[in-house]
Simulated assay, not measured.
Amino acid sequence: MYKLILPTFLFAANFTVYAGDAPNVVMVLSSHGKLDANGELVQPGYEFDELSKAYRVFKANGLDITFASPAGGKPVADKFDESKPYNQAFLQDTHAVSALSATYKISTLDADEVDAVFVVGGKGPMFDLHQHQPLQTLLANVYEQKGVVSAVCHGPVAFVDVKLSNGQYLVANKRVNGFTNQEEMAFGKKWRPHFDFLLEDKLKERGAQFTQAGLMLKHVEKDGNLITGQNPFSTADAATEVVRSLGLEPVKLEPNKDDKTMAWVAKIMAEGEQAVEAYLQNKQDYDTMLVAMSGIYQLQFAQNDTAVNRAVTLLELTQKEVNHPMLDINLAQGYIKLNKHQQAKAVVEKVVKSHPDNEQAKALLTQLK
């Protein structure tokens, strides 16, 4: 795709789609986020983890990167952990931080100069990106010019009202994914009631073939030059697929610890005990707390005994290291579902002994007697 090359010194403070010979990618962020006078988030914005994970991939592969948002300027992120390595790396990149503080207005971008668009998720996009006309125009034009359009988590909401020149919705009859209804039920309690619709429902309504993996498990879907990732743990792979679709051989990067952890959780949920040894031999490579929390949520949404068994395995593997009554109570509830009442009773008695004021444990022990 033709690119107007201008002197790079003009862009010392910003990335731009108009400089350099490498393929360029526009990373789209929500402008919905808002802080109150005390710096507390009162309106959700974009997901910083997804920004930094995707940025890591694009930068490593030498892409020109542009940050853009509906309002331009500095968008507000949802709360995030600055200590995570990929976030630290972004925050230490002065060029990236400078560009993020002065994002381009989407309305100023020219689709003729764009090779790829990557829409970052977060709850904010559910409020502003799907109804931002300049973004709809940009996505339609880039797509029809054979550029790559992509998004992760809630980011695919930007596609739901995009129509092509033939009058059809962009996602009609396409394989797509995004944050699922099940994931909304598990993790969207605060902002979900304020959404106009659920992403999965709207994509299906627009004629999309919605595909998905299990709860918070990695899943990337590619249908031609349309790429979507299901949740935050799908970000790096979705970004890598963008690089590949631009005709480049992606640089091999060491997976982020949380992504590696969730990939192993997926193996446990698919294979059960066969995947346990990989965890036991390489515990340092995995996030123990993330394994434990995955066990809790997998148990909550398990549809059959096999899923319950595998969720219980996650909890058993982390019980001693986490040493928290919430995990123990969930483990006991898993045992109850599997009719292992004596094991459940032993776990609950231990909780009651160490936390005598835990009403949930006391009620559960009464149930087991």
Rank of each mutant, 00 (worst) to 15 (best):
G247N: 06
S294N: 15
N339R: 10
L135D: 06
L4G: 12
M269W: 13
Y86M: 07
K202W: 07
L51H: 05
L139S: 00
T318K: 04
Y286K: 05
V157H: 00
T103R: 01
K123G: 02
K340L: 08
A140I: 02
M289P: 01
P193I: 01
K353G: 10
L138D: 07
H132W: 13
P156V: 04
N231G: 03
G247C: 05
D112T: 07
L41R: 13
D196A: 14
A238N: 09
E316N: 14
T103M: 01
A363H: 11
N339Y: 02
G45Y: 07
K174R: 12
Y55W: 09
P255A: 15
Q92T: 11
Q360K: 12
L253P: 13
Q168V: 00
F127P: 02
G188V: 09
E47Y: 11
A263L: 12
Q274N: 13
L215M: 12
G72E: 07
A22K: 14
Q319E: 15
F67K: 03
V351Q: 07
S98V: 01
E144S: 03
Y46E: 08
G45L: 04
V242K: 02
M1A: 11
R192E: 12
T240K: 04
K267L: 15
R206T: 03
K105F: 00
V17F: 00
S245I: 06
Y46Q: 10
Q303M: 07
T8Q: 09
D110A: 00
G45T: 08
R192A: 15
K174H: 11
A363T: 05
L246F: 07
L338R: 06
Q209T: 08
K53Y: 09
K353I: 00
S31F: 02
Q343Y: 10
T240C: 03
D81Q: 08
D93Y: 04
L315C: 07
E254C: 00
M27C: 06
T313K: 08
Y279L: 08
V25I: 14
L226R: 05
I106H: 01
Q319K: 12
F90I: 05
F159E: 11
M293Q: 10
G188I: 10
A89Q: 13
I336H: 02
G334I: 04
Y297N: 13
P23R: 04
S83T: 15
M262I: 14
T137M: 02
S294V: 02
L331I: 10
N177L: 05
N87Q: 08
G334R: 09
H32D: 05
M289T: 13
A208M: 07
D64N: 14
L139N: 00
I329R: 03
S31Q: 10
F11H: 09
K353L: 12
G214T: 02
A172M: 04
Y46D: 08
V251A: 13
S83G: 09
K252F: 03
N173G: 11
I227H: 05
T366K: 12
V97S: 09
T66D: 02
F210L: 03
T235G: 12
D64T: 07
M1N: 13
